[in-house]
Nucleic acid binder design. Structure first.
Length: 106
DNA sequence: CATATGACGATAT
DNA sequence: AATATCGCCATAT
């Protein structure tokens, strides 16, 4: 069933994140057309990631850290990322210089 | 219309 | 640096 425009664009943008790359909540919000709606991206993922079959694990916060809390998804997200070759460093952060998705870059 | 929510982000302390 | 607070805003109710 169809949803409202912003939600649809967020879902589509998340689907566009390639394997082996990550995007930030704020980045998804900007790409979906509402630059300050990062929290809404989180809300949408919380509500729809499983239902929509999204690659939700490719979305992290601005510091390259997994936003989910331990035993509330953190471990699963780390496993899914590492399966794609995305490793967390000793402090638990992803190197965004290597792994951040840069859409429409030549 | 009023309030609550949310896996954020920026700024202040 | 780590924590607290505030601003943000589309949806849900």
């Amino acid at each position: 069933m169809a949803r409202h425009a912003f939600t649809d664009r967020v879902i589509q943008t998340v689907r566009d994140i390639p394997a082996g790359k990550v995007a930030t909540y704020g980045q998804i919000a900007r790409l979906a057309g509402s630059p300050r709606a990062a929290r809404q991206v989180a809300r949408i993922l919380h509500a729809c990631s499983a239902k929509e079959g999204l690659p939700w694990h490719r979305v992290v916060n601005r510091e390259g850290r997994i936003a989910l809390k331990p035993f509330q998804g953190f471990e699963e997200q780390r496993r899914l990322l590492e399966r794609e070759g995305i490793r967390l460093d000793s402090s638990g952060a992803i190197d965004l210089r290597r792994f951040l998705w840069l859409p429409r870059q030549p």
